[in-house]
Amino acid sequence: MSSEHTAQIHHSEGNHWNGASEPFKASYGKLMMWYFLLSDAFTFSAFLIAYGTLRFSMPTWPVPDFVFSGLPGGIHHKPLIFVTIMTFVLIASSVTMVRAVQEGHRENKKGVVFWMVLTILGGLGFLGCQAWEWTTLIGEEKMSITRNPFGTHTENGTYLDGDGHDIKAGDSFKAGQSYLIHYHDGQFHPLKFKTESGDVKTQQMGPKSFGALFFFITGFHGFHVFSGVLFLIIIALNVASGLYARRNNHYEMVEKIGLYWHFVDLVWVFVFLVFYLL
């Protein structure tokens, strides 16, 4: 823990630590929110560390800009564009949240409600994007928590037959390139290919844990967004009813839900990093 921290505080700011005051100049509610977020950060860290550990233990891992390359409307091969839009939506909702908190400090009820409604819309927009992404991965590409058709080549070679879409017989590939095993007529159709050493092999499914971890971690994050939206709605209603104005504490409740909402954004920074970039 922070052995340094307690000691140092004592020496540098003795007065606030002598009791009957708030040493961190924060109410207990705000402190609780911070410490709850700290513990939640450990929950997410455990997931991401588990993700990293399993990924390190695998010989191959699907390349994200191959996996996440679709756009709504049947557009393919536009790597990472969709998730960039999703990220924008979440960042924008974070920004509107900051504005709501600022209006709260000015005791401007209308402003708080306005910016909170925008935040809620941003949150719903993000959830919508996630829903589309999941639907595509599950429905069209047939990835699930127990199955991952995104494999990765471990050596250079040439395809012996085509898949009727992108790959034609005779196309060559390099080690490290990912492929999607197509699914139609109720089964997967892995393609045959010839490696440089002359062996004829078949495409194999990618590491299962990729699908499981993706759905699990983005799902857990999405659940946080979802519950955040619920809390935002409740608190926005309370703001509109004038409850917090009567409390006369600069809309501290809005500030607290704001912390939570930014935390959701913060987690997405790392989910974005490990799933979509690395």
């Binding site: 307690t6 003795g14 002598n18 009791g19 009957a20 708030e22 040493p23 961190f24 207990y28 609780m32």
Partner: peptide
């Protein structure tokens, strides 16, 4: 736990330094 921590931080009586 959250309660214990915030209580010790914020609710010490006057003069009760750490």
């Amino acid at each position: 736990g959250m309660n214990y921590i915030t209580t010790v931080l914020n609710l010490r009586t006057k003069g009760m330094s750490l």
